[in-house]
Design a binder for these strands. Structure first.
Lengths: 143, 143
DNA sequence: GTACAACTTCAAGTCAACTTGAGGTCAAGT
DNA sequence: ACTTGACCTCAAGTTGACTTGAAGTTGTAC
């Protein structure tokens, strides 16, 4: 049997749910590293699974691949605690926004006013949206 | 003075914070309508401001411009209550995910373990991320 | 009456994170 | 030996929501 500490790309793909193309892309970007080759086939160390989970975590937290890359510096997959903390704060912000948004939608869906434009609550929500829009552009980021 | 029920694109831009290019783009897509022209300059009805706020609301709730477009059907800016309700549910989901994520990040940032890979809590978080990754691809959507 | 800032159109460019396609290699099972 | 399917590379395409640029027009303040 082959080295148990070496996964081919198909295994990794099955294990993580990520398509092989994505894994190659991540390797290109330097987010993961293969261990060597069997012929021309990549061999990944076992811990690539964990690392990919970490990448997923970062993506879900709204980090770009580049930001995630900076977390993986020279001495291995060491994590920048400040970056993490900042991201947690940002998430808190976003959660608050989304909660307000959800409440607004919920209300709008239930509101008996014939047109939402006759409903003061809805108008107030729109007003809030308008204001936050004016504060800063919302550059869409992945979730 | 010109008709008080007619804003030129610059006014709308200033009022909403959206660049003129975006407003033209939205008109192209049929999300807003101009009232007519003054020469070749668009004139927008006053209520375009409200409509743009509504569009912003939709965007923030994660709707695509096309989805928002379907909310504005024939008889005016009438709102699809079911769509709204569904989106509210989706937001609830997302809020839960983000909360878990935030807690994870917060913990990771504070955790005294030398490497996060030695911290059981962190490993469990990664595991959760891995599982949710396996459930469904995360196609990034705007926020 | 003229300068010019603000508008116009339309096509093309941008961004991130991938995906797809063409054309090729190769290990393993039958 | 040979088929086959999983792998390879590299360039180009995709998506959505805009932005930018070039080239032209015009309302308005002076």
């Amino acid at each position: 049997m082959s080295n148990s500490n070496a996964l081919d790309i198909g295994k990794v793909a099955k294990e993580t749910g990520l398509p092989a193309s994505t894994l190659r892309y991540y390797e290109d970007k330097g987010l993961i590293k293969s261990n060597g080759r069997n012929g021309l086939r990549r061999l990944f160390p076992n811990n690539v699974i964990q690392r990919l989970a970490l990448i997923s975590l970062g993506r879900m937290a709204g980090l770009s691949l580049d930001e995630i890359g900076t977390m993986f510096t020279a001495q291995g997959p060491e994590i920048n605690r400040e970056l993490l903390s900042n991201k947690a704060d940002e998430l808190d912000e976003k959660i608050k926004e989304l909660s307000a948004m959800r409440d607004g939608l919920r209300h709008a869906a239930a509101c008996p006013a014939p047109s939402h434009f006759e409903c003061p609550k809805f108008l107030k929500l729109l007003d809030i949206v308008g204001k936050s829009k004016r504060k800063k552009r919302v550059k869409s980021k992945p979730i």
